[in-house]
Amino acid sequence: MGEELDVSCARPVSGAVGEDSPETAEKEQQEEKEAKNMIMVGRKAPDFTAPAYHKCKFVNITLSDYAGKWVVLCFYPGDFTFV
C-alpha cells in the first residue's frame, strides 16, 4: 500500500536552512496544540504520512489509507537496539 518513493538523499524541507519559515513555526505551534489535545481513547487517531520500508520497497504510508481496517501503530526507540 502507498506510493513508491524515489531513492534519494533529499529530505523534504521548507524555509532557509537553520531558520524556520513563519509557516513552519505556525505549523509547529499547531502540532504542539494537537499533541496536548488529540490523544484520547475513543477519539480519532491523528492522521499522518510518513516514509517507510515495506517488502523491499520505499513507500509513503498514510494512516487514513487504512480506513476500514484495524491498525496497530507501534513506536520503538531505535533499529538495532536490543529489546
Binding site: S64, Y66, W70, V71, V72, F75
Partner: peptide, 14 residues
Amino acid sequence: ETRGRFIIDPDGII
C-alpha cells in the same frame, strides 16, 4: 520514540 502502541479501529478511532 518511547514504546507506544496504539490500537486504531476501522473508523480511525483510538
